[in-house]
Computed example of a mutant assay.
Amino acid sequence: MLLDIVLVVLALSMAVAIGRMAFGPTKADRVVAVEFGFVISVAAIALIAVRSDSPSLFDLVLVMTLVGFLTTMSLAHLVERRP
């Protein structure tokens, strides 16, 4: 029951992130929105893994977290470099 409520809140947060991605005034705002959406996706998969008691999804969360870190570093470098 509680996990369902948290998943609904994450879905609403994803809607806000998608809105910021579409209507962000600067590139930096859009990059932050993409990162926020990625974090929400990882959190949702982790909650689904807990709910379904699936250990393979925890491996996916771990890999997504590592890829997300590398993506954050490369996007930060890209935003910093552009005028």
Rank of each mutant, 00 (worst) to 15 (best):
L2Q: 10
L2T: 03
L3P: 00
D4N: 09
I5N: 08
V8A: 11
V8E: 11
L10Q: 03
A11H: 01
A11E: 05
L12D: 04
S13H: 02
M14E: 08
A15P: 04
A17M: 02
A17I: 06
A17V: 04
I18A: 13
I18H: 03
R20H: 03
M21W: 09
A22C: 04
G24Y: 04
P25W: 07
K27T: 13
K27I: 14
A28R: 15
A28H: 09
D29R: 06
R30M: 14
R30T: 09
R30L: 12
A33D: 05
A33T: 08
A33N: 06
V34Y: 09
E35R: 00
E35K: 01
F36Y: 07
F36Q: 12
G37S: 13
V39N: 12
V39W: 03
V39F: 05
V39K: 05
I40G: 00
I40Y: 00
S41W: 10
V42R: 00
V42D: 04
A43V: 08
A43E: 05
A44N: 04
A44K: 05
A44L: 04
I45W: 01
I45G: 00
I45R: 05
L47R: 03
I48V: 13
A49H: 01
R51Q: 15
R51H: 10
S52H: 10
S52K: 07
D53Q: 13
S54F: 10
S54C: 05
S54V: 11
P55I: 13
P55A: 02
S56C: 04
L57E: 02
D59M: 10
D59T: 15
L60W: 04
V61E: 09
V61T: 06
V61D: 08
L62N: 03
V63Y: 13
M64P: 12
V67N: 04
G68C: 07
G68R: 02
F69P: 00
F69M: 14
L70A: 11
T71D: 09
T71K: 04
T71R: 07
T72H: 01
M73S: 12
M73Q: 04
S74A: 12
S74N: 04
S74H: 02
L75K: 06
H77I: 15
L78H: 11
L78Y: 15
V79S: 09
V79Y: 02
E80Y: 15
E80S: 13
R81P: 00
R82H: 01
R82L: 12
